[in-house]
Amino acid sequence: MKSLSTRRRHPLAAFVVLALGLAFAGTLFAAFVSPAASADTGESAAQQLANGKALYISSCSSCHGKNAEGTGLGPSLVGVGAASVDFQVSTGRMPAKQLGAQVEAKQNIFSTQQIQDMAAYVQSLGGGPQIPAAGQYAYDANAVALGGQLFRENCSQCHNFAGEGGALTDGKFAPKLTQTNPQQIYEAMLTGPQNMPVFSDKVIPPAEKQAIISYLLNSRNEPNYGGAGLGRLGPVSEGLFIWTVGLIALLLCAVWIAAHTTKASAQKAAQAAAAGKAGK
C-alpha cells in the first residue's frame, strides 16, 4: 500500500489510470454487447422484430433516427427492404465507421441471426426488396455467356471488364467484385447501394441477375490464359510493366554487350595497360 501511495504522483500515473479505465470499460462493453451474446435461434417473429429493433436502436439509430425516419447523417430506412440491410451490414459497410466520399466495406461484426433480425425489423417498417433465396443466385454454367453480355452492357463501365473496380467522381469508386459473395451481388443489384443505380427486377429480371452472377463467378475462377494477369487492369499495367521490367532487361543486355569486346582487343588493352605501368 505504501508503494502505491508513493507512486501515485509519478508522471506516468495518469496514463496508467487511463489505460486501466479504458480496459475496464472495454471489457464491460464486450461483456454486455457481445455480438455472440444474443445469437439464439428459433425465436418467434415478434421476438425477432423486438431483437431487431433493439439492435437497430443501439447500432443504427444515431444516424438513421429512432424511427428510421432519417437524420442529417443518414437517409430514412423506411422502404429500403431487408435486402438492403443484409447487403449493407453483411459487407461491413454499416454501421459506418465515418462519413466520407463513400462508406467502405470492412469486417462485419454481427452474426447472421442478428442481421436477419435487423433486416426483419426494417422490412416491417415499409416493405422493400426481400433477401433473395439461395437458388436465385446459384451458379449456372449455361448462363455465363449471356451474363457476360449483360455485365458489359450494365456493369463494366464502372466495375471494369474483369470486375476489378474503377474510379467515380469526387473520391467515390465502384468496388472490386472479385471477393463479394453471390448473395451480396444480387442484393446490390436489387437495392443500388450508395452510388450504384438500382437494377430492379423490371430492368434486369431475376434470371438475368443470376446470369450476371454466374459470369462473375466464372471470370473469377478463370485462369489468366496468357500468363501473369498484371491485375487485369488493361493497357496501363502492361505499359508500366514494359517501361520498368522490359526496359531494364533490354538495357542490361545492351550494357553487357557493349562492355564485352573481343578477346583480341581485350588482350591488347590489357597489354597496353601493362606497358603503361611499366613505362612509369
Partner: peptide
C-alpha cells in the same frame, strides 16, 4: 475478357497502349 465491341458497351479502365 474485354468482349466484342458493341457501341453501347464500355468498361472502366479503358486505356490505349502506352
Amino acid at each position: 475478357t474485354y468482349g466484342p465491341y458493341v457501341p453501347n458497351e464500355m468498361t472502366a479502365g479503358s486505356q490505349p497502349d502506352w
